[in-house]
Amino acid sequence: MSGKDRQKQLAREHYERQTQRRLEREAKSKRNAIIGTSVAAVVVVGGVIAATTLLGGSDTTATATSEPAPSPSSSVSEAAGPAPTAFDPAAGTCGYAAAPDGAVKNVGLPPAKVDKSPKKMTIETNLGDIVIEVSAEKTPCTVNSFAHLAQKKYFNGSKCHRLGSDQFPMLQCGDPLAKADGKNPTDGQGGPGYRFVNENLEGAKYTRGVAAMANSGPDTNGSQFFLVYGDTQLPADYTPFGTVTKGLEILDKVNKAGFIPPGDGGTGAPKETVEIKDVTMSSKS
């Protein structure tokens, strides 16, 4: 074999290895993404197929505790732009990175410097206040992002677009362009134009009162989050950033009203509209 032929062979083998690794990442990401933020309208159909599979369809590994997949995931590849970095205790900073799909409501990047003092987040809605005791110590990058978005009035006027059932008890919010009417195929695709790392995943449980981040794969957090009003069996893939201390009765009321089908994996837009009027972050009193 000539030197040139050998180079071609090595290049081909390198390409094949890269392709195999990419496919494995995508397959793993699709298996793990249960609560997701859609990244492109073209992949919505894939999310419905994934939901059907996880609910029992043709997947013989599905069990009674399987949760529905609300949207497909997108693997974070080398072509997706710079990766976010975790909290640096020495510098007291978080590394936020621009998202390749851009912002639906551009408010810039959060400040890198983080304040880890105890805080509470108040979500003022048309149905009353939902108060969350957030953990800035365990999820500094997440809480810092919420403080930034709240200060920029990012959530004001937005609607929570996705409600689960008693088998999947969660309300998902945080897409500023969501219409939450059961008719808009782009609900759940909006983000702030940046992403940040997963945090606090070790031993994570998603029981009644937990507030956690939605994502479309590892370290793709943006602005979408979900509030749990029952107990779920989700895998530890979604950053739990706090606990609801006031307003769980609001979630129960919304749950009782039901949702508008069709939706991904047995979910849909809530019949009882939940509009976020304002979000504030304050010191824990």
Rank of each mutant, 00 (worst) to 15 (best):
E67L: 12
P261E: 03
A97Q: 00
C160E: 07
P261D: 04
F259A: 01
D5L: 15
N32R: 13
N221I: 06
T37C: 10
T65A: 13
S58G: 14
Q172P: 05
G174N: 05
L10R: 15
A180Y: 05
N215V: 06
Q172D: 00
G92Q: 05
T207S: 14
S145L: 05
T239Y: 07
T60Y: 12
E249V: 01
T53E: 14
Q172W: 05
V39S: 08
K4Y: 11
G102C: 08
G47F: 07
A112R: 08
G108T: 09
K277D: 00
A50G: 13
S2V: 02
V228C: 07
G258M: 09
P140T: 08
K183M: 09
G222V: 01
H161Q: 02
I130Q: 02
T186I: 10
R17Y: 11
I49R: 11
T61S: 14
V274G: 05
L248A: 05
V114W: 05
G242L: 03
P72V: 11
M213D: 08
A211K: 04
V244C: 03
A211H: 00
K120G: 07
P176S: 11
I49W: 11
K153N: 15
V48F: 13
E249F: 01
E249D: 15
V254W: 07
I130S: 00
G209D: 03
S66H: 09
G46M: 08
N156T: 12
H14V: 11
T273I: 14
D175G: 09
S73A: 15
A79F: 14
V244T: 02
E26T: 10
R195A: 02
G209N: 02
F146G: 05
G47R: 05
P176G: 09
A180L: 07
S283T: 13
L55G: 13
N184V: 03
I130K: 03
K253S: 15
D231I: 04
G191D: 04
S66E: 08
E13Y: 10
A236W: 04
V114Q: 00
T61L: 13
Y238T: 00
